[in-house]
Structure formats: C-alpha cells, structure tokens
Design a protein around this nucleic acid. Structure first.
Lengths: 356, 356
DNA sequence: TATTCTTGCTTAAACGTTTAATCAGGGCAT
DNA sequence: ATGCCCTGATTAAACGTTTAAGCAAGAATA
C-alpha cells in the first residue's frame, strides 16, 4: 500500500480511503489509485486489517461429526454462502464427546473468528461463547437459528405414502434422542394421517441388543403386513433397502422404502430412493446472513450499541421447506402382497421427479 | 499482554520472551509470568502475531468437489492432523471447473494461509502458487506428495478374489481419465493374475450413451459368466450391488461385489461390502508434516536460505498401504452359477475382518 | 472584505505481537 | 583495580492496515 502511495506521491491514508471509499477523496484520485493498485498487483493484507479492525473475516464451522454423510452438503453450502459474503470458513471437528465440541469452539475463538455456524451435537445447547453464533438444528429446538423444516418434510413424505395407499408403515429412526429425527417422525405420522397404522423402530435400541450392524428383521415386518418402510435418513433407508432385497422382497412392487436427505447414493441405487431433501443452499444463506447482520455494524442506526452481540443470532425465518423427490423405491402396495416376489419393473431414469 | 507486563512491573517484551522461551529471562520470572498469564486468562492474539511474523498458522484445504462422499474422511483427518500441529484449516471448495479451483486457491492465498493441502481435480497439475503445497493424489502422478497406494490396494483385492476362485471378473470404474481409478484397476489386474479373465467397464461411457443413472446391465454380465464385480469406488459398488440384487442375483452366493474406500454405508448394507480402505490418518499426518517442514524454519541449519520454499512439498514416503476389509459381499463362486438364486446365508456380524 | 463551511488531503496513533539492538550490573580473569 | 564477558532485563522499531483529528486552501455566506 505504501508503494502505491509513494508512486502517486500521496499518503498511505489517502490510498486506504480511496480504496475503501470511506474518507473524502477526489474522484480522479480514486481512479488513479485504483489503476496503480491493480498495476502493482496490490493485495491488501487481511491480517493487518484484522489487527486494526478486530475482525478477521473468518467464520467457524462446527460439526458434530465431520464423518457424517450429510457433511459435504452442509460444508459446501456454508462455504459457498460465506465466500460470497467475503468470508472464509475455518472448520472444526467436534468428533467424540461434548467436551470435544467445546474445545473445538475454543480453538475457533482463539483464532479470532467473527462468528460461527454450529450444527450441534444431539441434545447439546450452545452457551454464549463470546461471538455471534448461528445454530442449524431443528425449528423445535430452542436457540435454533434456521434449519430445514423437518416436520414439514416428514409430512410431505407421509402424504405421499398415504396417497399411494399404504396403510401399515414402519418408521425407522436411529436415535430417539435426536430432535431432528423426532420432528421427522412426527411429521410422517401427521402426513400419514390417523387411518394409517404405524410403528417406530429405533435402530440404536435394536443394536443395543443384537450388536452393531445386525439385521433389523425387516423381512419379518414385511410378512407381518408392513408395506412401507420410512426411514428418517437415507443411510437407514439404504440399510433397509438392501436388507429387504437380500431377503428376496421386491422394492417397490412388494414394499416401498423411503429416506431423508437425498444423500449422494440415493439416485444411483436400484431402485433409486424416494427421499426428501433439505435446501441447504437457502439454509446456509440465511444462517450466514443472520451472522453477518450481527457482525457488521448497522450503519444506519446511530445508537450507542456498537458492541457486537454475542449470542445466538436469529433469522427472519427459522425453517425452510423440504423438497420431496419421488424416485423408484415407492409404489402402491400390491394387492398380492408379500407373495409376489421379483416381478421385474423396467428401470426408469433416475433423476427423480421433484414434487412441491 | 501489556496487562501482564504492568501487573508484574516488567516490559511487554519480557513477557513475550518469557512465554515463548526465546530471549534470556530468569527462570523465576518465567514462572511468575506464566502464573499471571493464566490468572488473567491471557489469550495471545494470533492476528497480531501473524502480522508480525508473517505466518498465520492456518492451512488451506482444497478439494475437487466438496460433495465427494470421501470428503468427510479427508477433512476429518486433515483437520485433526493440522489441529494437533497447532494449525487451523480453512476450506475451499473448487466445485465446478478448473477455473474454480484456481480461484479457490487464490482466495486461500489472499487470506494468507501458510500452506495448503490440495486434492487435485482429475488431471490437474498444480502450478507453483506461492506457498508450500501438499498434493494428495496418487503415487503415479508427478508432483504427488503422499497418498494411498491405490495400486497396492487393488492388488490386495485382486488377490482376495483370485484366492476365492473367481476366474472371470468385471472391473467397474467411473472415469477412465482418473489416475486414481487407473491405478486401482492396474493393481486389481495384477492381483488377479494372468489366468483370470477380466474386462473393464467405465460408467461414464455407459452413461454417455444411455443417460445418467441408467442400469449398467450387470445381470447380463452375470449371465455371461462374470462371477465377481470389482468396483473402484464404494459408490459404484453400491450401485452394482443393488442392481444385481434387484435383478434377483444373490450376492455373494452367486456373484461377489467389492468396492473401494470403506465409505460410511459399506458396513451397513446387506450384504456388507468387502472393500479396501485408505489410511487417511496416516496420509494426513504425512502431508501436514511435510507442509510444516517447509513452513517452519529449520532451526538447526544456519544456511542463508531462510525463504520458505514455495512449491510442492515432498514426504519421506509418497504412498501408504491400504487395508483390505473382508465383509460379506465376497465369497467363492458357487459351482451352480447363476441358476442358484436367493439361497439365503445367515447374516454374520458386519464389523469386518481386517486383513493385512 | 471578513467569516465560516467544505473539500481534499496529511499526520499520527493505534491494533498486539516479535525481535534486534541496547544497556546496566555483577562475576571473572588479567 | 581495570577491562571483559555474561546475564537479565529494557527500548524501540516493525508488521500493514484503519481512522480520528488536523490543516490549508478555495467556495460560499454574511
């Protein structure tokens, strides 16, 4: 910067003002400074700026378990939104226990992040950590900034299955302590309506008895009359799908299987999974916008409260609709029921029809 | 820091020296400074330090497509290794074209990262970007810093299949332009040996003709005598597995299916996938260690070359062995061949036996 | 014409560290 | 006893910005 100033015979402060458009600088000088800057390939030192302004231009991203298959979607959306807003994204894995989450947050704080996006570990409440925080969890959780409307997504799926004619549905969740999963299940039940019989299976409970990765006994369930298996995550749906197929039960002609989240494999398995997708791009945009509102000074208002607020930020809307994607894993329950195995239906293209 | 200095009646410089152990400070004063520092809850400003030293303590992580299902493993391992070394990790998604990758690298550079880890987009060579770079690709690619030994992994899998008695194997890849996939396929062929007949299917080519997500026609292949389908990624393996199951072909009693990478779902599908896993923790450790060697001054050597080298860094070893994980999707080819459909074998626990 | 406002720029301080250079004093050898 | 080295500290500069305050000169106002 001083090089530009010297080359133009002005002071460094003027160059700064010219580039930021803050002080009073003549238009022609601004132009000259701009020209010289790009001529010299000037890149402002974000470090120095950070030191002076106290803002680093970096946001932290804290995830409960970075190995979560949903992570790519989240990270990509957040990175994109942040990057559009001129921010960088520092990741912190809070793998393991709650202590690790706290420690991860601490590391980010030390690095001087201006704010952070936290997808909290199940059942965790985020205390005021000393910087603005956007929480992506579920609308039913207090402190949530913005998230997918899991309940509504569940209800879309429920209506889809009910409309196909299913009357006995098994809901499959992983952990009963997950707010997200409970919301999805609540929505499913509501969407299925009162006349549909449903039962809920929590995989964690089954595994506590029979060991991790054990068979879920879904073939028996099918024989018991369940015609649809609605998992609240695509991973469980995949598990259900392959277990049923392995047992020789045809999907979708005998039973239907549905998932949640539209994970990477949903479209490529056979039959392609009917699922419901979060609009992560919108969620990320809202979360980042809310954060930035808390970080950057208002400008308009001249109140004394120049302090950056330091708690959970809020968004205009705390829930964004989900998108039902109907593929080949759902169909009307066949009258023949379980007896009609392996009737081959031609594979239609898998892109999926987006409903709603 | 000045608060500590004032409280102890010494200068700020002394405090700095005491905490960093650099200058000459009396042992008892060091102790007092330490005590006061933790009493006051002193947290050094990494920003100021960065300004002064020119090093930010932040590494960049550039991924070809953050939505890649392998990403969680990579990000987690890198974050962990970096964090252990006292570095933060800034992510940059280079989704889209090569231009996006360059632009992502530029953003990281502006933020003053001390170095970066790049998993290059297929076929990309990383030019000298102005900071140390660790490239994680494949040993056969020039410029590679460290990566899994994909060829060796393929050969392990090949030997496993050959030993089971398979004599006609279909190798399934996504893109013929991927160095990683070619290495894996090369290894597979070598491991299978000369007496095993094999053919290679590239999904991209099939899809170019029949559309994305189209059936791969594997049932026909099975009828043509292929008894094993070795995909070079778990995603393709999953696609193969479900397509075969859907066609009523039993895995593993009729044909075997194998994958690569041990992605999250490999253990939970039925039958659980036999696959081969990268040791990302070791790879990440080596990559980060190599980076840090380039970043941090040698200390010992008193040569004038204080400059940080600015190209691709190298590691002691550029390839780390893969780990064959045998689960339920592989078995000896049944003498009866394709006719013997749906023979049920009991589901064994899915944890997987780790070989080698 | 004398005063005040406005414009366009400069000066200087500040952000919180690190580090080279300096300095006072005590022990040691000459 | 004088000069020298070593120890344990201090001083001051520097990193590259931002920004409040100051200032000179021309324009507008009285």
């Amino acid at each position: 910067m001083s090089a530009i100033a010297a080359a133009l015979g002005v002071s460094a402060a003027t160059v700064s003002n010219a580039l930021s458009g803050k002080g009073r600088v003549s238009p022609e000088l601004i132009e000259k400074v701009r020209a010289k800057a790009s001529e010299l390939g000037y890149v402002p030192s974000l470090t120095a700026r950070a030191l002076r302004t106290g803002r680093t231009g970096v946001l932290g991203l804290v995830l409960p378990d970075i190995a979560n298959p949903l992570f790519p979607q989240i990270a990509q959306a957040i990175e994109n939104a942040a990057s559009n807003a001129g921010y960088g994204v520092l990741i912190a894995d809070s793998r393991g226990d709650i202590a690790a989450q706290t420690e991860a947050i601490g590391r980010l704080l030390e690095r001087g992040v201006d704010g952070m996006v936290i997808v909290p570990r199940r059942g965790t409440r985020i205390a005021d950590v000393g910087c603005p925080v956007a929480v992506i969890d579920t609308p039913s959780t207090p402190g949530n900034t913005v998230s997918a409307d899991h309940w509504e997504g569940g209800s879309q799926m429920g209506r889809h299955l009910a409309k196909l004619g299913h009357r006995k549905v098994l809901l499959i969740g992983t952990s009963a302590s997950s707010n997200v999963q409970n919301d999805r299940i609540g929505g499913l039940k509501a969407g299925l309506g009162a006349q549909v019989e449903c039962d809920t299976m929590w995989i964690e409970k089954v595994e506590a008895v029979s060991g991790e990765g054990c068979p879920l006994g879904l073939a028996d369930k099918a024989r018991a009359g369940f015609t649809a298996f609605a998992a609240v995550s695509d991973l469980s749906a995949l598990r259900a799908l392959t277990e049923l197929q392995r047992a020789g039960i045809g999907v979708p002609e005998t039973v239907s299987v549905t998932g949640f989240d539209d994970l990477i494999w949903s479209a490529v398995v056979t039959p392609a999974l009917t699922t419901v997708r979060m609009d992560m791009a919108t969620i990320a945009d809202l979360a980042i916008a809310a954060l930035i509102r808390a970080i950057e000074p208002e400008g308009e208002v001249e109140n004394g409260a120049e302090e950056v607020s330091t708690g959970n930020v809020t968004s205009e809307t705390d829930r964004v609709p989900m998108q039902l994607i109907v593929r080949q894993s759902t169909a009307a329950p066949h009258a023949g029921g379980i007896s009609n195995l392996h009737a081959q239906t031609p594979n239609k293209p898998t892109a999926g029809e987006i409903i709603s």
